[in-house]
Structure formats: structure tokens, C-alpha cells
Simulated scan of single mutants.
Amino acid sequence: MNFLVSIITPAYNVEDFIKETIESVINQTYKNWELIIVDDCSKDETFSVAQQMAETDARIKPVKAPLNGGAAAARNLGTTLANGEYIAFLDSDDLWHQEKLEIQLKEMVNKNAVFSYSAYHVVSESGEYLRDVKVPDFVDYKTLLKGCDIGCLTAMYDVQKLGKQYFLQPDSANNNTGLPENILRRWGREDYVLWLSIAKQCEVLNRKMIGIRQELAYYRKRDGGISANKRKSSKFQWIVYRNVERLNFFYASYNFILYAINGVRKHYF
């Protein structure tokens, strides 16, 4: 097993974290990877740190985005540049367990899966352990409507089977929501929309989206993130149901109630 894995890392003003993130990739037991770091017009030394580390390892490939377009646009640019047979995502302040890629690839190959995700640890901004996020053995489209257990930092998919997948972003051809750009730019649900899209493709292919119960990553919970604002997150969840997935009011309401219940379970139990 020697598939090339392209790791996409959007980065914006993370000079205090990016080195540790890169090191968690360098320390992987699985060695056939490329790390595409897309600097989203940072105002600090993020890009310089990435460049310095790239000088010691040719697998690290920092690029500058032409303009500040947000994480979705940065991930899409990285995906366009990716050469791998698999694509994985890692945000620039998060970390991976050193066996993450090795374990995940083996699971996908053994189970003939085209998409996988894993459990992960949640740590504070300073790196202190907070809690674990568990995941089910598999999900499908209907399951994802009721709540998302997929952490973007753990997601990986098979490019050969699914093709390159792109995140919904404002002011682009794949924005068919009818929503203004200023709303889309700050909603923070682009990954969830992509997982829903992939889930529908998996149903057509008769393939599963598999979960790995072992914690293979560390999600850094920082103040000010969209995911930390539950009211705003709930509002955008409703937007996904009604404007993106085009669910009728009653089915959207049913899933929204279950989403809220699962959110409480996920974060407090």
C-alpha cells in the first residue's frame, strides 16, 4: 500500500500553531504524502514559517491564495493542486496522531470504503485535553441530516472513486443557495454541505462512509470560532436544510430537532 495522500491545510494568521501542525504530519508513520498549505493572505508570519519548514522537506508545499477568500476557497485551491489518490484535510491549528494516515488507509482499503473519518480529542487553545468526540461506525445521507459526527480534520476520501470534491463557497458557480455572499462567507458549514454531497454519491456507488472509533486527531478549540457560537451555528444549520438541501419545512424541522438533541449529546455527554 503506497498511495499518495494529498493533505490540504488552509492557513490564516496561525504563526503560533502552524509549525506544530506541520510536525504532526512529518511524524506520520505513513510517509507517502504531500502537504499543501494554502495561506489565505495571512497578516502575520504564517507563510514564512511554512516556507522555512518546506526547505527541509520537499513534501511540504506552501502556496499563497490570490486573495482572502476564507477556508472553503483555500481548501478548494489546495484540492485543485493536489496530486494524490486520496485527499485528507487538516486545519492549521489542529494535530494528527502519528498513525492517523496508516490506520485510516488500511481501514479504507480493507473495507472497500471511499470516505472515512475518525474519533478525535478536543484540546484547549494551549493544548490541554478537554474531551473526546466519538463517532459511529458509518453514516449515510439521512444520518448526516440528523447531526454531523465528521470532524473535517479527520476526513479522507478516495479521489479515484469520487473525483476531486470541492467546498461550497460564495460568489462561485457551485453557489446555488440564493444566499448573499456576506452570509455564506461566515457561515462555516461548507464541510458539512460537502459531506452531504459525498453521502449522496456513496449511495449511488453503494459504498459506505466509514468511521474509525480510535481517536486519530486533536481538534484545538479556540475562542471566537463559528463552531463555538451555538446560536449562529444553529441558524446556519437551518440554512443548509432549506436553502442547500431544499428540504420541505416539516422534514427540515424534524431533522433540526434531532440535530439539536445530538448536539447536546455530542458536547455534554
Rank of each mutant, 00 (worst) to 15 (best):
A88N: 04
M108K: 07
Q98T: 15
E203F: 08
E107R: 02
I103Y: 05
L77R: 10
S116I: 08
D40T: 05
R246D: 04
A50Q: 01
P170Y: 04
N262Y: 12
L216H: 10
A228G: 13
L101K: 04
K64S: 14
S24V: 14
V204D: 13
L216F: 05
G70I: 09
C41A: 12
K230C: 13
E23A: 10
F47Y: 00
M108W: 01
A119R: 08
D44L: 05
E55Q: 11
V122S: 02
L35A: 09
K142M: 13
W238S: 03
P66F: 14
L258N: 11
G78I: 06
L247C: 02
Q28I: 07
T79E: 04
L194M: 15
S172I: 09
S233D: 12
T29I: 06
K43A: 09
G225S: 13
V133W: 07
T56L: 11
I212S: 11
E181R: 14
W96T: 10
A74C: 14
D93Y: 11
G70K: 00
G211V: 02
W187R: 03
V204Y: 05
I26E: 07
F167S: 02
G127W: 12
E203K: 14
S42N: 02
P180E: 11
A82V: 09
G147I: 08
S234R: 15
G70T: 10
S227F: 07
A217V: 08
A11F: 02
E128A: 14
K235S: 14
I198Q: 01
L81Q: 01
V114N: 07
F236T: 02
G151K: 12
G127A: 03
K19T: 05
I36R: 06
L179G: 00
M156Q: 07
I183C: 03
N176V: 07
A82E: 06
M156N: 00
E190D: 14
L196Q: 08
V123S: 08
L205Q: 10
A65Q: 08
L184Q: 05
T80N: 13
F47L: 04
Q160V: 13
N2R: 13
N83E: 15
Q214I: 07
I87D: 04
F17V: 11
K106M: 10
K111G: 01
H121G: 05
K235I: 15
Q237F: 09
E15K: 11
S116Q: 08
S6D: 02
K19P: 04
N68C: 06
Y12F: 15
I239N: 10
I26W: 03
L77Q: 11
F115N: 03
A217R: 04
E55I: 02
E181Q: 13
I87Y: 05
S234M: 14
L77K: 10
E99V: 04
I60C: 08
A217K: 06
R131T: 06
R189A: 09
K164Y: 11
G225R: 10
I7T: 07
C148P: 00
A74P: 10
R246W: 01
S227V: 10
K142D: 15
R220H: 08
Y157A: 00
P62K: 09
N110G: 01
G69S: 12
N32P: 08
F249T: 11
V25F: 03
N32T: 05
A113M: 10
G78N: 07
F250W: 15
E23Y: 09
C152P: 00
G70V: 09
V49A: 00
C148F: 09
W187I: 03
E55T: 01
A73Q: 13
D137Q: 12
L153P: 02
D57T: 01
